[in-house]
């Protein structure tokens, strides 16, 4: 019975081959687990996108309401605190393993020829994940996120020459207001756009199988 179902899928989409590809990835025997952090990050990324989409069922990117809607998700939505918790801890874990993964790539010399561009793509993804983390933090709608917006847009203003313009662009105006939140919410939802970058970055990497479905 089970074999029949497996064959049915194999004939059409080659499921067994795909699973074997996932599980049969060849990695150096020495310190094998540290080579899985890239795949782990890809997995965490997918978790963040999925939970993020479903948090958007309730979330409103507008300042007093942002706090209200986050509170509602946490306290009144069925298992909403779990979903919010997965999104929050997924973000923390992602930042942590991002650092671990970058360190692994650096110390194992995986940036050397012919993998220079993987390193560049990795750096792009690194900044994207940091931006996602910051914007996500700004969206919660409590005092912390409000002052994070103010402080970090002021930090951006210290860039030489273009700083002032940068602050206006990031804030969507001269004040931290409605448009700022809209921008932050959009930036945080740009997962969809970024995921293409992610696929690009991972395409030729070791952990490329994960997103090449």
């Amino acid at each position: 019975m089970f074999k029949k179902i497996q064959n049915w899928f194999d004939e059409r989409i080659g499921l067994t081959k795909l699973i074997n590809e996932f599980n049969g990835e060849r990695i150096p025997s020495k310190g094998s687990w540290i080579y899985t952090f890239g795949s782990l990050l890809a997995f965490l990324f997918i978790v963040q996108v999925v939970t993020g989409i479903f948090l958007l069922f309730y979330y409103v990117p507008y300042f007093p309401l942002a706090r209200n809607s986050t509170y509602f998700i946490k306290h009144h939505v069925l298992l909403g605190n779990v979903l919010l918790g997965i999104h929050l801890w997924g973000a923390f874990t992602m930042i942590f393993f991002l650092l671990v993964h970058m360190a692994r790539v650096y110390f194992s010399g995986a940036y050397k020829k012919p993998r220079e561009l993987q390193w560049v793509a990795g750096m792009v993804l690194f900044s994207i994940v940091i931006i996602l983390g910051l914007t996500g933090y700004m969206l919660i709608g409590n005092e912390n996120s409000w002052w994070t917006i103010n402080v970090l847009t002021n930090v951006a203003a210290h860039v030489p020459l273009v700083g002032g313009f940068l602050r206006i662009i990031v804030r969507g105006g001269t004040e931290t207001a409605t448009l700022t939140m809209q921008r932050m919410a959009f930036a945080d939802c740009r997962h969809y756009v970024y995921s293409y970058t992610y696929i690009f970055g991972k395409e030729n990497g070791r952990a490329g199988y994960c997103l090449r479905i």
Binding site: F54, L55, V77, L79
Partner: peptide, 23 residues
């Protein structure tokens, strides 16, 4: 073992999402 762990993770993700949608 990997299959079992994946299933557990999948369920742990799906249940809160269902709660979110069916709230």
């Amino acid at each position: 073992v990997i299959g079992l762990i994946s299933t557990v993770i999948g369920v742990a993700l799906t249940v809160p999402i269902l709660g979110d949608v069916l709230n």
